[in-house]
């Protein structure tokens, strides 16, 4: 009977070890080998990494991922925070607005990708049908989401801005959990909206915001995978929307270069760790 907590924990620990920790360790080892799943892995030392940094496609993917994270993550957080502050209290339309803001996050990635594949379509897509009139008036061509590199990158970021539902729900809960009397006191002190936001709301929500920022940064490497695969297919040339995750996927499962892909994975992980540490440090300093 004394053993039963261990038995209850066992499946999870097994899953954690078999599906996360061991694969993680294996990735680290594979990164220093040449491996194609058929022949046994061959130790190549740092060769994968030197090749990576000489590879223009990888450098492109690295830059794309960093830009995506640098733009999409802060924007997503800002949007979610704005929505949460707007919609944390009941009023007309607030219920519908909450649903509208939360639901896109629940759409299966692939369905969401296919939706935007259509929305962005230059001929069939409603976005450009809508933009055609105003663009002509301004004497410009409407954005070519699927063929021009920067338009495509912008498209992928726009896609990511609608799926902040999870963050939004967490932030609404965090905002609702703030003590009421603090705001009543602020009202008695006749504090204005901006002061209340800066001096009360923001510091009190900082832990939740910090956590979401870190989490979203980590997730950003995955966030761009399906859209890039489905909507832009890593293009338009030259590899404008090939992000690190797509780069890893292609090298592993299309070119069967598992060692090389693992090395790229490690770079991706190292970047994640650096980004997270930087943020933790910034957040800590901001709170002082």
């Amino acid at each position: 009977m004394k053993r039963s907590p261990w038995l209850m924990l066992a499946p999870y620990v097994f899953g954690l070890v078999a599906l996360v920790l061991v694969p993680f360790a294996v990735t680290v080892v594979l990164a220093f080998t040449e491996y194609d799943l058929i022949n046994p892995p061959v130790w190549v030392g740092w060769a994968n990494f030197t090749e990576l940094f000489d590879d223009p496609i990888f450098r492109m993917a690295l830059g794309n991922s960093l830009w995506f994270a640098a733009i999409a993550v802060p924007l997503r957080l800002l949007i979610a925070l704005g929505l949460a502050l707007l919609l944390h209290r009941r009023s007309w339309f607030v219920g519908s607005a909450r649903t509208a803001a939360a639901l896109p996050a629940a759409v299966p990635e692939i369905a969401y990708g296919l939706l935007w594949l259509w929305l962005f379509n230059p001929v069939h897509g409603p976005i450009n049908q809508l933009l055609a009139g105003p663009s002509a008036l301004l004497g410009r061509t409407p954005p070519a989401w699927l063929t021009l590199p920067n338009d495509a990158r912008a498209g992928i970021i726009i896609m990511s801005l609608f799926t902040v539902g999870e963050m939004f729900v967490i932030l609404v809960a965090a905002r609702q959990a703030l003590p009421r009397d603090v705001y009543e006191l602020a009202a008695i002190e006749d504090a204005t909206g901006w002061d209340i936001f800066r001096r009360i709301t923001l510091p009190l929500m900082a832990p939740a915001l910090g956590l979401l920022l870190v989490r979203d940064t980590i997730m950003s490497f995955q966030l761009s995978f399906t859209p890039a695969l489905v909507v832009t297919n890593g293009g338009p040339p030259p590899y404008a929307t090939t992000y690190l995750s797509l780069f890893v996927y292609r090298n592993a499962f299309e070119y069967l270069r598992y060692g090389f892909a693992a090395a790229a994975t490690l770079v991706m992980l190292a970047l994640t760790v650096v980004a997270v540490l930087l943020q933790v440090r910034l957040l800590r300093r901001a709170r002082l």
Binding site: L16, A18, L19, V20, L21, V22, P23, F24, V26, T27, L30, L37, R215, I218, M219, F221, Q222, F225, S245, V248, Y249, A252, F253, Y258, A261, A262, T265, M268, L269, T272, V276
Partner: peptide
């Protein structure tokens, strides 16, 4: 740690396994 590691990072060894 399991939460921080992106799923794409584990695909290769999981596939092999």
């Amino acid at each position: 740690i399991g939460l921080m590691v992106p799923a794409t990072a584990l695909l290769v060894p999981k596939f092999a396994m």
